[in-house]
């Protein structure tokens, strides 16, 4: 299963969804890295993510590091409580630019 990607002028948005676990994080990672190859600012929309584990977090971290190296903006958007819980446990809530879900 792939993830939805939306391209606007200057910004690409990846909509991750469902459970980003060991089984599905490779697909999430590939989508994130492929989208970064468009060399636009990346927004990762997490509103439909019900669960994320360390492998999902690792995919986000890798994409974030690639974006920074390429001088591209990277933002996590619409972060719900379950994802925020894991980000904070990993102390990544202070690392990622985060736009909390309204």
């Amino acid at each position: 299963m792939s993830f939805k990607v939306k391209d606007d002028a200057g910004t690409s948005t990846v909509f991750l969804s469902g459970e980003i676990d060991l089984e599905r994080s490779p697909a999430a990672r590939k989508t994130l890295l492929d989208t970064l190859a468009r060399r636009q600012a990346l927004v990762v929309d997490l509103r439909d993510v019900s669960y994320i584990d360390s492998s999902g977090i690792a995919s986000l971290v890798e994409a974030y590091q690639k974006a920074r190296t390429a001088n591209l903006a990277f933002t996590l958007a619409e972060v719900g409580a379950p994802v925020m819980r894991v980000l904070s446990l990993a102390r990544l809530d202070k690392v990622f630019p985060i736009r909390v879900a309204g």
Binding site: D53, S54, S55, I57, A58, V61, V86, L89, A90, R91, L92
Partner: peptide, 18 residues
């Protein structure tokens, strides 16, 4: 340490934290 975000390290940290 949390600087080390290799998957194994983060996972183990989460196990202990949770």
């Amino acid at each position: 340490t949390l600087d080390d975000v290799r998957p194994g390290g983060l996972g183990t940290h989460l196990m202990h934290a949770l």
